[in-house]
């Protein structure tokens, strides 16, 4: 049974216009952890020769998953914003395959939430990219 916070966060995340435009679907959400998928789309190609999705689209997926992990964390809150996000691109995502990112909000202070994320295509043993980020925490939410 999903708790109230996760339910509110789910509704909010499902309504983000840019994430919707990129075809993102929230696959799983629990306290402080989010999994979001993004299907392959030729409009998102960054390299015309290899047909690989542009890194920017992967960044958007990582940012959305990171924000979702923060929103669903009991000590953070819905009104979060990204302070800093670093993405490491390990390998090109295989064309036509869906990319799935999982983000974990592993630490929250009164002001900042810290997040780690990993993105994979069908070959889940070799991540496409990893990310670390810091997000804002809405005042008054933390105990």
């Amino acid at each position: 049974m999903e708790n109230q916070l996760v339910k509110i966060a789910r509704q909010f995340i499902d309504a983000l216009p840019h994430s919707k435009r990129l075809g993102m679907v929230l696959q799983d959400l629990k306290e402080g952890e989010a999994t979001i998928s993004m299907p392959y789309d030729p409009e998102l190609i960054g390299d015309p020769v290899s047909k690989v999705i542009h890194g920017g689209a992967v960044s958007a997926l990582m940012d959305t998953a990171g924000g979702a992990a923060v929103m669903s964390h009991p000590q953070a809150g819905i009104g979060t914003a990204t302070l800093d996000l670093r993405i490491d691109y390990m390998r090109p995502a295989t064309p036509v395959q869906t990319i799935v990112a999982t983000a974990t909000c592993y630490h929250v202070t009164r002001s900042v939430a810290f997040v780690r994320a990993t993105a994979c295509d069908d070959d889940t043993a070799r991540p496409v990219a990893t990310a670390t980020g810091a997000f804002t925490v809405v005042k008054g939410r933390s105990a």
Partner: peptide
């Protein structure tokens, strides 16, 4: 409008900015 992240503010999506 497709660039918006938080529709309540509204603000550009961090991913759109990164891209």
């Amino acid at each position: 409008d497709d660039l918006i992240g938080n529709p309540m503010l509204p603000a550009l999506h961090g991913g759109a900015t990164a891209s």
